[in-house]
């Protein structure tokens, strides 16, 4: 192991000598999940590391939520829309709630070549219109070399009532906290 490490180190020195003055390509690689930075530059400028932290920005701690879920109080049997940041980009269609799940479709009305990401958040309410739980539908387009499907403007969803509020949920709300379409 010692010898192999030594050879690797020697190769490294050769590598460094070869690149000085031409290109600085510094890779600080770690295990999966570690931050890595590669500075790909040429010429006399000093290596540059892009800003990786942002003062005052609190990292996300969970799934995206909508404040509006607690602000609506639907009557038993009702399904209402919960306000979100992208409400001008879609319409909700064919909404239905049977006590066990809420279903429907989001039809994107702005530019659509692909819907890259969509999260539909469902709030569930008791007979007094109090939010008792929520669940979500998540769509993420996996990018690949081919797009076998035509542009998708309408995505259907079914969101089951969480088990811990089953039987108590008598109404629902629907909101969209995540929508990325192009």
């Amino acid at each position: 192991m010692k010898t192999r490490t030594g050879i690797a180190a020697a190769l490294s020195v050769v590598a460094l000598c070869a690149v000085v003055g031409v290109t600085v390509y510094a890779a600080a690689a770690g295990a999966n999940g570690d931050a890595r930075t590669v500075a790909a530059m040429e010429g006399p400028v000093t290596p540059f590391t892009p800003q990786a932290t942002f003062a005052g920005l609190s990292p996300a701690t969970g799934d995206p939520e909508l404040e509006s879920l607690v602000q609506v109080h639907p009557s038993p049997g009702a399904i209402v829309a919960a306000a979100g940041p992208f409400d001008d980009r879609f319409v909700l269609e064919d909404l239905a709630f049977d006590g066990g799940s809420v279903s429907g479709a989001v039809r994107v009305t702005s530019d659509v070549s692909d819907v890259l990401d969509l999260e539909v958040l469902a709030g569930f309410y008791d007979a007094k219109g109090v939010l008792v739980g929520n669940a979500r539908f998540v769509h993420h387009l996996v990018e690949d070399a081919t797009h076998a499907e035509p542009p998708e403007e309408r995505l259907e969803f079914t969101i089951a009532v969480p088990a811990d509020v089953s039987g108590r949920a008598v109404a629902a709300s629907i909101g969209v906290p995540v929508l990325v379409n192009e």
Binding site: R4, T5, A8, A9, L11, S12, V13, V14, A15, L16, A18, V19, V22, T23, V24, Y25, A26, A27, A28, A29, G30, V38, A40, E42
Partner: peptide, 28 residues
């Protein structure tokens, strides 16, 4: 860590050559 670093530096050589090649001789 040492092995990782060494690997990274060898990678650096390859990558440097690649990057240099991408832009052609004028990159130097």
């Amino acid at each position: 860590t040492s092995v990782l670093t060494s690997t990274s530096l060898v990678t650096a050589l390859v990558a440097s050559v690649i990057l240099t090649g991408l832009g052609g001789a004028a990159l130097t």
